[in-house]
């Protein structure tokens, strides 16, 4: 039995129907535990006060913004190479979710930036890179919406996802070059000496797990919707022809 069996729409619908309640439950639990722990049971930071606690939304959202695009890239490649419709529809389903994570990352960043840096927006490389990422998401979603034939749309958006990934990556380094920023470095490396201490780190990991599960939940729901809508279209066409 091969993993590609799950790319069969019917099989996917069965499997996802079975998985969905479990993933949803786990996502809710992890997010609830992580956020409550992070917000109410961690000490205020020495210099930053309570503002630092927004990392429990900001960091996981930012990570998922990038992960969602990566997932779209992989599923697009699978569609181009193996022509599995579920893969293309999953990429389509993930795009608005990824965009929302990007927007959450940007908004929480702005809210955090205000007390930290004294400004809502700075053309800091990381912020700029995320803004550019949001534009890539917008273009990708707009292309899906503009093309009528679903297979044509899947092909075109897949090519865009591949080319866009390369250029998004280039942009990331271009903006680093363009402006060395205010933003602190990654807070999550394994080298804990320099980074956030355990007290903050553990609830953050739980939050990230929660966001990942939330993403999986939403992608499953939306992919199921896309499959149903695609199926509905096929049935309507058949009706018209008969």
């Amino acid at each position: 039995m091969s993993i590609w069996e799950y790319a069969n729409p019917k099989k996917f619908m069965q499997t996802s129907a079975f998985l969905l309640p479990w993933v949803t439950g786990l996502a809710l639990i992890a997010m609830l535990v992580g956020l409550v722990w992070g917000f109410f049971f961690t000490p205020d930071a020495d210099k930053f006060g309570a503002t630092v606690k927004i990392i429990y939304l900001h960091v996981p959202a930012a990570m998922m913004a990038i992960s969602a695009w990566t997932m779209m890239l992989v599923t697009s490649l699978i569609w181009l190479i193996r022509r599995h419709h579920v893969s293309a529809l999953a990429a389509k389903a993930a795009a608005p979710i990824g965009l929302m994570f990007t927007v959450i990352g940007l908004v929480t960043g702005a809210i955090w930036g205000q007390p930290m840096w004294g400004t809502w927006w700075a053309w800091d490389p990381r912020l700029t890179a995320f803004l550019i990422l949001a534009l890539f998401y917008l273009g990708y979603i707009a292309l899906w919406a503009a093309v009528e034939n679903p297979d044509t749309a899947a092909d075109l958006t897949s090519v865009l996802a591949i080319v866009g990934s390369v250029f998004a990556f280039l942009s990331r380094y271009a903006v680093l070059f363009w402006n060395q920023g205010l933003h602190q470095g990654a807070s999550l490396s394994l080298d804990e000496q320099e980074n956030v201490s355990d007290v903050y780190w553990l609830p953050l990991v739980v939050c990230i797990a929660g966001f990942v599960l939330l993403f999986v939940t939403l992608v499953l729901i939306r992919t199921r919707t896309e499959i149903r809508s695609r199926r509905l279209q096929a049935l309507l066409t058949r009706e018209r022809l008969a």
Binding site: P9, K10, R83, H85, R231, A234, R238, L241, A242
Partner: peptide
């Protein structure tokens, strides 16, 4: 002329799975 799928006609790849 392509027959409807129910009458044994050819299906598009997506439809095939159902």
């Amino acid at each position: 002329r392509a027959r409807p799928a129910a009458a044994g006609g050819i299906r598009s790849a997506f439809d095939e799975a159902f």
